Simulated assay, not measured.
Amino acid sequence: MAEQVPKSVLFACLGNTCQSPTAEAVFKKMRKWRIDSAATSTYEIGNPPDYRGQSCIEKHGVSMSHAGLVTREDFAAFDYTLCMHESNQRDLNRESNQVKNGKAKIEPLGSCDPQKQLIIEDRFYGNDSDFKKKKKKTVHQQCVRCCKAFLEKTY
Rank of each mutant, 00 (worst) to 15 (best):
S41L: 08
T42F: 14
T42R: 15
I45W: 10
G46P: 10
G46L: 05
N47F: 06
P48A: 13
P49N: 07
P49F: 02
P49R: 08
D50W: 03
D50M: 09
Y51I: 15
Y51L: 15
Y51E: 15
R52T: 05
R52V: 03
G53D: 14
G53V: 10
G53Y: 08
S55A: 12
C56R: 14
I57R: 00
E58N: 11
K59E: 12
K59T: 13
H60D: 00
H60N: 02
G61C: 03
V62R: 12
V62S: 15
V62K: 08
V62N: 11
S63M: 05
S63N: 04
M64N: 00
M64I: 00
H66W: 01
H66V: 02
A67V: 04
A67H: 11
G68D: 01
G68C: 02
L69N: 00
V70I: 01
V70W: 00
T71D: 02
T71V: 01
R72K: 04
R72S: 03
R72G: 06
E73K: 03
E73W: 00
E73T: 02
F75T: 07
F75M: 06
A76T: 09
F78I: 08
F78G: 12
D79F: 02
D79S: 09
Y80Q: 13
T81H: 10
T81W: 10
L82R: 11
C83I: 06
M84E: 08
M84D: 06
M84R: 09
H85D: 15
H85G: 14
N88T: 14
N88C: 15
Q89S: 03
D91H: 13
D91A: 15
N93G: 09
R94P: 05
R94C: 07
R94Y: 13
E95N: 02
E95H: 05
E95K: 11
E95Q: 07
S96K: 08
S96A: 13
N97K: 08
Q98A: 12
V99A: 01
K100Q: 02
K100F: 08
N101K: 07
N101Y: 04
N101A: 09
G102C: 06
K103I: 13
A104S: 13
A104I: 07
A104W: 04
K105L: 10
I106T: 07
I106D: 02
I106M: 03
E107N: 05
L109E: 12
G110F: 01
G110R: 02
C112D: 14
C112H: 15
C112K: 15
C112S: 15
D113C: 15
D113I: 14
P114L: 07
P114N: 04
Q115T: 13
K116M: 15
K116E: 15
Q117D: 04
Q117N: 11
Q117L: 13
Q117R: 13
L118K: 13
L118W: 09
L118D: 12
I119N: 09
I119C: 04
I119V: 11
I120P: 04
I120K: 03
D122M: 04
D122V: 01
R123P: 06
G126F: 01
G126E: 04
G126T: 01
N127T: 08
N127V: 06
N127G: 07
N127F: 04
D128R: 12
D128F: 09
D128L: 10
S129I: 05
D130V: 05
F131V: 02
F131H: 06
K132Y: 06
K132M: 13
K134D: 07
K134I: 04
K134H: 07
K135R: 09
K135M: 08
K136Q: 10
K136G: 12
K136C: 04
K137P: 01
K137Q: 12
